[in-house]
């Protein structure tokens, strides 16, 4: 890392620069680059000006991912389906973990779909610099555009998987399974927002560390897999021994997964206090993550 902080890039779009003519005012500078940046300078306005880029990144990720594959976007469905089947067999049939009386298949699928969104966003965000090192070294644009585009493109994947999940839900309901969707459904946007915020916050913190310590890159991949067992993906919190419950509840993702599952399937609802805890946790981790991101992005080019 270099001496000094990041640059303060004040990119004020003056009317003159919008018109494409250089400003003739003697003391007006459109761009001032100097060291030391304020600790919490989100530059959201700048990110907003680059919204087209964010959407093009989303499109790129979507189009490029499944080019030259036979099944194409079907993979978005195959992945959670195979995972759900595996979980149903291993945890449902063999280990016989209780599912609060819900159909095992739907229970695991809800958990998998939600968890996949978080896990993918986290892993991909933490790889932002490594994946884009060449690009970042050559051109300036708000670096946050990349993680934000990751959140959005995975939201599309999530939507596809979610519709698939709803289809199974309808199928099970028609067959008379005891499913009770309830007003918690209205919380869906907030749950998604919390999850995206957590993924972005954690992702950027890991990102900041991986730029300095490469070993963490290996850790994150299998770490995320292990982390899944610390969240109620394959079990429900209420079925745990009382001693373990607080540990799992401390995980801010737990209440989100539980709330999600409860909203669409019924069963045991997490308390609103729990959800508030997750939301608060998200805000804190997001702020920390973005501050760290701003510190690192300015000079990461020199270290990677």
């Amino acid at each position: 890392m270099t001496e000094g902080g990041g640059p303060t890039t004040d990119r004020t779009p003056s009317p003159s620069s919008v018109l494409g003519h250089p400003s003739s005012l003697p003391d007006h500078w459109d761009l001032v680059i100097r060291p030391h940046r304020k600790w919490f300078d989100l530059k959201l306005g700048e990110l907003w000006r680059y919204r087209d880029l964010v959407m093009l990144f989303v499109r790129r990720d979507f189009v490029a991912l499944y080019k030259q594959t036979i099944l194409g976007p079907l993979w978005y469905i195959i992945q959670p389906l195979l995972t759900t089947i595996t979980f149903t067999i291993v945890f449902g049939r063999i280990a016989r973990l209780p599912t609060n009386g819900l159909p095992q298949f739907l229970f695991y699928m809800a958990g998998t779909v939600v968890w996949t969104y978080f896990a993918t966003c986290l892993t991909k965000t933490s790889e932002t610099f490594v994946q884009n090192a060449q690009l970042f070294g050559k051109v300036y644009f708000p670096r946050l555009a990349v993680p934000v585009s990751i959140l959005i493109s995975n939201l599309i994947a999530f939507a596809i998987q979610f519709v698939f999940f709803l289809a199974f839900m309808v199928y099970f309901a028609l067959r008379g399974s005891p499913i009770r969707p309830n007003p918690y459904i209205l919380l869906t946007p907030i749950l998604l927002l919390t999850m995206a915020g957590l993924a972005l916050g954690f992702g950027t913190i890991v990102l900041a560390l991986t730029t300095k310590y490469r070993d963490l890159r290996f850790l994150i991949h299998f770490g995320v897999q292990l982390l899944m067992y610390a969240a109620p993906v394959v079990y429900s919190t209420s079925s745990l021994p009382p001693g373990l419950q607080p540990i799992v509840r401390a995980n801010p993702l737990s209440s989100i997964i539980e709330a999600f599952r409860y909203a669409y399937l019924g069963g045991v609802a997490p308390s609103l206090g729990q959800l508030a805890y997750s939301f608060g946790f998200m805000v804190v981790i997001l702020v920390v993550g973005i501050v760290v991101f701003n510190r690192v992005e300015a000079t990461f080019v020199d270290t990677v």
Binding site: T2, I33, V139
Partner: peptide, 26 residues
């Protein structure tokens, strides 16, 4: 271009700055 930060001193510019640092990046 703002890709990396200076340690001290500053650059001031009027208007949009764009670079052709190796074409085709991205």
């Amino acid at each position: 271009t703002g890709v990396t930060a200076p340690t001290s001193g500053q650059i001031k510019a009027k208007g949009r700055v764009a670079s052709l640092l190796e074409v085709g990046t991205g």
